[in-house]
Design a protein around this nucleic acid. Structure first.
Lengths: 132, 132
DNA sequence: AAACAAGGATTACGGCAGTAATCGTTGCTT
DNA sequence: AAGCAACGATTACTGCCGTAATCCTTGTTT
């Protein structure tokens, strides 16, 4: 098992940038962060890059005087880990209550509904075990 | 706006006990926690109770020499807050990708699929109160 | 009354997170 | 060459979190 390092809230923002596009130099990453949220301070971003490198969530290779960062862990792994943890903590690990919550709280758009229907169809179709 | 205080991972365990049944004395809460996870230490639980009181997540009234604790914030509010935050952070705020993730990663049981279908039906039908 | 027991209050302490500022190095500019 | 600018490294500081231990108060027991 890989057991992804724990990625904090703000660190996640940084990771998102690099999951979207990599490798990137620190400056480019900072630009991307600022583009999303004006309040990002370059120094803060640098600190987070260092921490993420220390955590082995990011790696880099030197390119001239600067670094090019790239993710060492996959977004899908982090998403899975965060989702598990969230589901366990908030909904005791069971899906149905969670789905009910989201379905009721945040009204789905018609498109989303359609998309989900499609997913459910796949789900109950092949996928081995779910029989209908 | 209420803006529920931020409830940490372990604090959440404590809250769950009181959301399930309240009011309860510290001893009862600790018993409940231990029942779920043997490793809970009474002192640790007491610390958390204090912190939750300080955060205004819990209140208490004295009953003889002991306290009776009760939640000051509703589970539904906390669930909503945690869900929002999770959805934003991990899935950029959009439901469909999240549901897709869960649908694909944790194979839904036939029952869950049916349940979700039912929810979607309601969704696309009157959506309860919004319009209708 | 003295000591104990039960429960709350206070104190502790290392680690992570958020948020930066300062230090150090090195190529570039004047 | 000297200083500046760009970039990474190091240092900082506060607050929250996990995890308790110790202290204090007061009812209870011998």
């Amino acid at each position: 098992m890989k057991s992804v390092p724990r990625i904090s809230e703000t660190e996640w923002e940084v990771m998102k940038v690099l999951w979207a596009k990599a490798p990137l130099a620190a400056g480019e990453i900072i630009d991307a962060l600022v583009a999303v949220d004006r309040t990002w301070h370059p120094k803060t971003a640098k600190t987070l890059l260092n921490r993420l490198v220390k955590k082995k969530a990011l790696g880099f290779k030197t390119e001239g005087r600067a670094y090019l960062y790239r993710p060492l862990i996959k977004e899908s792994e982090c998403v899975a880990a965060a989702s598990e943890s969230f589901l366990d903590r908030v909904f005791g690990g069971s899906l149905a209550p969670m789905l009910a919550h989201f379905a009721q709280h945040r009204k789905l758009s018609a498109d989303e509904v359609r998309e989900l229907r499609r997913l459910l169809k796949e789900e109950s179709a092949g996928t081995g075990k779910a029989k209908e």
